[in-house]
Design a protein around this nucleic acid. Structure first.
Lengths: 164, 164
DNA sequence: GACTTTAATATAACAAGTTATATAACTTCA
DNA sequence: TGAAGTTATATAACTTGTTATATTAAAGTC
């Protein structure tokens, strides 16, 4: 078994390491969401959906700030949401340079379902995986990687009794 | 200024968040390396170069383990290193399914320069950015993001007096 | 020793991010 | 008020990651 050099090199490869853990988390989250909701509710789109849900219609530029990603990336994501019938795009009536993005009824329905179900599940599973991590950033990342390898997110879901 | 929803959502979007910070770190690291070494020594390739440097020739499979990334990704990275004259690939004489990857002389020279220069600089800059982070994982990530925004890695390089 | 299974790598197609640049609409100011 | 500058978004091209599958070599098995 060859040694994990990215972990070994520590701060020198922190960027690579963070991306690596992030991709694993996203992949596991995607599995989790797909199991309980339509796969179109991808883990990658969730922040965009959540931003529109919480703030109402936003321009591409506002979404760029809300998500913290490059503008062309946001433009493409929004295009996909539109293609799936979850969002609408139209020019701002006052300043026609601005593209205003809003959720369709289907999009709002989806978010409602996600809020009640998959999103809560994801948050609980990730919280579980991160519970009690301690020490420096590198320490905590190491612990988190070990935990995700030992028990990935889908195995960290507890069946909840729905209040009635 | 629209609120940073990825930060706000906390554990639910931890994957997205880790990827985001990782990409920023890699981009800043790339700037740093390009400034003091040939741009072919990209931040993404560094782990592969380091693994080969420390362990000697490795198979694609061993590199996959060392880097913790998918096999096709490693195959492509290695292909690029080969195209740049930094690595060689050849079949293992005993088991001809195995592709053994090794550094060329040019590759070894590059690593020697990186070890003396750019890699140390990167490690020092990232260490500086992470110094004294405290609290939970989310806390530390928040602090790190703030610091990288306020003073990115290239501004965290201290000029060192070379011992002679 | 041919036949099947397993293992290692390569290839293809896709996903999601980036930078650089083009386009179109608004603003400024002489 | 029209030329020049600025801003918002779209588009193009690239990078780096992924999964699924094809290919080839080795290992078992009867």
């Amino acid at each position: 078994m060859t040694e994990d050099i990215v972990r070994r090199l520590g701060y020198m490869t922190l960027g690579t390491r963070l991306k690596r853990i992030g991709e694993r988390l996203q992949a596991q989250t995607q599995t989790l969401i797909s199991e309980r909701e339509s796969p179109e509710a991808g883990s990658v789109n969730s922040p965009v959906l959540a931003a529109l849900w919480r703030n109402g219609p936003l321009s591409i530029g506002e979404l760029t700030q809300a998500i913290g990603q490059s503008q062309p990336g946001i433009t493409r994501m929004v295009g996909k949401l539109k293609a799936r019938g979850l969002a609408e795009i139209g020019p701002d009536p006052v300043d026609r340079r601005i593209s205003k993005v809003s959720l369709t009824e289907a999009g709002k329905d989806l978010v409602r379902r996600l809020e009640e179900g998959a999103w809560q599940t994801v948050e609980a599973a990730v919280t579980d995986a991160c519970e009690g991590l301690s020490g420096s950033l590198l320490d905590q990342l190491g612990q988190l990687e070990d935990r995700l390898a030992a028990r990935p997110l889908p195995k960290r879901v507890r069946v909840r009794v729905k209040a009635r």
